[in-house]
Design a protein around this nucleic acid. Structure first.
Length: 212
DNA sequence: CCAGACGTTGTT
DNA sequence: GTCTGG
DNA sequence: CCAGACGTTGTT
DNA sequence: GTCTGG
């Protein structure tokens, strides 16, 4: 799950909302952010500036960067143990900026209905993420990220078993500060309560175009 | 010791 | 069915 | 996550 | 890099 999400705000609005400086490289809003794209995140580096990292984590030890295809999500339940994630969990956390995500509900007729999940307020929010830096055999280092998932809350449950971890504003800071122990962040901070969220069907036409 | 994996999703 | 690319 | 490819030879 | 399986 969480293989697509939306960033509808323009770059300046996005930066303002998260009390950050805009990214140095240009950023484009999009309704259908997909894995392998360079997308806006806030790193836990102290500097409050939006960075563009590639979606799909490549561990530093990877020989084959296509491993990223399989690492667009990380299960919260096992993130401490998995070789691909545990280093990043300790040292390289990030906020993945968004204002909606999509789940595809399987219908009885075999087709799939895309559903859009957002805050009732429509405001942007952050997913809990991890990032990594990978050195290719030649050329510049590549920075990548993954989005943490957990079990679905009551609202999402009807269409899907899992959902991305969405941070409250307080949770955002704790996440970046590496403050929370696993128990704390898993149980207290993270998934937004279902009554703060809304869910609605969207047409696949909207998602076909990556841009806006 | 070396060789090979290292992951998620959904679906059965 | 399974993999790759976006 | 979904959409789309998935293969070779030779010839233009 | 580090762990698991042979």
């Amino acid at each position: 799950m969480c293989g697509r999400y939306a960033i509808s705000l323009d770059p300046d609005q996005l930066a303002t909302h998260f009390h950050a400086e805009p990214s140095e490289t240009p950023l484009r809003a999009r309704l259908n952010a997909a894995p392998s794209e360079y997308l806006p995140v806030l790193l836990n580096s102290g500097e409050r500036r939006i960075s563009l990292l590639r979606w799909g984590l490549i561990p530093s030890w990877a020989k084959d960067p296509t491993i990223a295809n399989n690492l667009i999500n990380a299960r919260a339940e096992t993130i401490e143990e998995k070789p691909s994630f545990r280093d990043a969990f300790k040292k390289r956390r990030c906020l993945v900026l968004a204002d909606a995500f999509y789940e595809w509900q399987s219908l009885p007729n075999g087709k799939k209905q895309p559903m859009k999940i957002a805050l009732q307020s429509g405001e942007p929010f952050a997913f809990a993420g991890l990032w990594e830096q990978w050195q290719p055999p030649e050329g510049e280092p590549l920075r990548t990220f993954t989005i943490i998932t957990t079990s679905a809350n009551p609202l999402i449950e009807s269409i899907h078993q899992r959902m991305p971890v969405m941070l409250t504003p307080k949770g955002e800071q704790m996440w970046l500060d590496n403050q929370a122990s696993v128990e704390v962040w898993r149980n207290l901070l993270l998934p937004f309560e279902a009554d703060l969220m809304k869910i609605e069907p969207v047409t696949s036409d909207i998602l076909r175009q990556s841009g806006m």
